[in-house]
Structure formats: C-alpha cells, structure tokens
C-alpha cells in the first residue's frame, strides 16, 4: 500500500508547500542564531582588527594565533568542542572555585551562538582590518591634529568610512552565516534544518522537505541581500548638492572692510620686531 503510494506519487509537489508553515515556525530560531552570532562576530572582529592594525604587542600574537586556529578547523568541529567543552569548563569552575553553575541547564543554543560567533569573528577580523586600513591616512592625521583621541577618531571618522568599505564583505558573511546555522543541530538546537529532518523522519518524504528548506533559505537570502543593498544606498553620499541660497549675503561694508584689510596687509603692514 505504502509502496504503491510512492510509485504513483514520486514527488509530492503539494507537500513542499504544505510543509512550509511547519518549517517557518523555526525561522525565528535560525535568524536569532545568525543575528546573535553576527553581533559577537562583529564586536570581536572589530577588536581583533584594531589589535592587528595598532600592532599592540602580546595581544597581537594572541590574535594571530586565535585567527589561525579558527580558520584552520572545521566549523562543525568547533561547534562540538563548544557543546562538550563549555559544560566541562563550568564543571571545572564549580569544582575549583566553588561557583554553582547549573550545567544541565546550560542551553545548547548559547553554545551554538558562542561557537558560531567566534568562528565569524575570525573571518570578519580580516574584512574589517582591510576596511580600516583602506581609510586614507590623511584623514586620520587630520582627526589627530584637531585633538581627537584614537577612540574618538575611530568612532567619528574611521569607522563610518570603513563601514562603507566593509559592508559588502560583512553582508556576504552574514548570508553565509544564516545558512551555516543549520550546523547548530550539533548543539542540540532545533532550528529550521533540524525541524526539516524531524518532519522528514515522520513520513520519509526527505526530498520534499529539503526542497521546502531550500526555498525558504533562498527567499531569506534574497530578502537579506535587498536589505543590504538598501543600507548601501543610504550610506552613499549624494551625487550633487545645491549651493546654499538662504545664507545672508555679505553686506557691502563687510566686503569693503575685508578688502581694506587685505590692502593694508600687502602694502603697509609694518614688519614686526623680531624676537631675536
């Protein structure tokens, strides 16, 4: 009976659509994972980038070592290490420092965000570093010359400009991250792909469910791309600007005064006594 159904209905087209709502219930989990990991990845990535650009001793070697490890190991391995490692670490803390972390309650979700955030940071660090060093030195010197501290210059001048350079790269890596969240099953997190597997396991319609998943991920990617394009547009400086018309025109007497000053300056300005 079952076999017959499968033969007559090799690909259940309707099921692809009917399963969408079941999967979409887990879209928020997927997006939360991606967004939180991206946040960690951005903050930590910026920190790593600054350490490398400012060539801060010791921290710089640590940063290079960290980036090398993260980039040299598969993401899935990192997730497993976080999933098994973090509880072990907490247990160790409890034993040696008398803390009382509830290990069994520590959510896999946090482990997944932690691992994916660290992974993301290593890749973002490079993008951000390249963007920061693309900012023209002259502007940084100008910021210093008006008396800004480096953090002020970073926040007011360097980051806004580096942002526009880094945005496409960071956007790409965010899109990659959204799809990468499907690895979160390693930390026992049920996000969209994991839910798909569960649905497929119920009726053995794995093919249909993966097609549904593909459609959702694709749609999400397109939407995110659109949003990124919009942000890019907003960051663009305008092509042309109107000359201000409403400013008060200089009065005749002011112009005369200025000309008089210049005349005085060029012709009759006495040379001041020198200090030596």
């Amino acid at each position: 009976m079952q076999l017959l159904a499968e033969e007559t209905n090799l690909f259940d087209f309707g099921l692809v659509g009917r399963q969408l709502p079941e999967l979409l219930k887990y879209l928020p989990t997927t997006l939360e994972l991606a967004a939180l990991s991206m946040l960690i990845g951005l903050v930590l990535g910026l920190l790593l980038a600054i350490i490398r650009i400012k060539k801060i001793p010791v921290l710089r070697q640590i940063a290079a070592f960290y980036i090398s490890i993260i980039r040299g190991t598969p993401a899935i391995v990192q997730l497993y290490i976080a999933y098994f490692g973090i509880p072990m670490f907490l247990k160790y803390m409890n034993l040696h420092y008398g803390t009382s972390f509830d290990i069994s309650a520590f959510p896999g979700f946090a482990c997944a965000v932690f691992a994916m955030g660290l992974n993301e940071s290593a890749y973002n660090a490079e993008t951000i570093r390249a963007a920061l060093s693309s900012v023209d030195r002259g502007q940084i010197e100008a910021a210093c010359a008006v008396g800004m501290t480096y953090p002020q210059a970073l926040r007011r001048i360097i980051l806004p400009e580096a942002m526009t350079v880094a945005l496409p790269g960071l956007g790409n890596s965010f899109i990659g991250l959204i799809k990468g969240t499907s690895l979160a099953f390693t930390c026992a997190v049920v996000e969209m792909t994991a839910q798909g597997k569960i649905l497929g396991g119920r009726n053995y319609r794995y093919f249909e469910v993966y097609v549904s998943l593909a459609i959702i991920y694709w749609a999400v990617t397109i939407i995110v791309e659109r949003i990124l394009k919009l942000i890019e547009k907003r960051l663009e400086l305008p092509e042309q600007i109107d000359k201000k018309k409403d400013s008060v025109p200089e009065t005749g007497s002011e112009v005369e005064e200025r000309e008089a000053a210049v005349q005085y300056d060029t012709n009759t300005r006495p040379e001041k006594a020198l200090s030596q």
């Binding site: 023209d136 002259g138 502007q139 010197e141 100008a142 910021a143 210093c144 010359a145 008006v146 008396g147 001048i157 806004p160 400009e161 526009t164 400086l237 600007i241």
Partner: peptide
C-alpha cells in the same frame, strides 16, 4: 594638538562629512 592647528598640503578633509 589642541593648541595647534594644521593645514595639510592635500587638505585631508573628512570625506563623509559636509
């Protein structure tokens, strides 16, 4: 630096500011 002002050969204006 706050007591001195600098005018550079290549202007060095902040590109993203009016």
């Amino acid at each position: 630096r706050r007591n001195t002002g600098m005018v550079f050969q290549r202007f060095n204006l902040f590109e993203r500011k009016t």
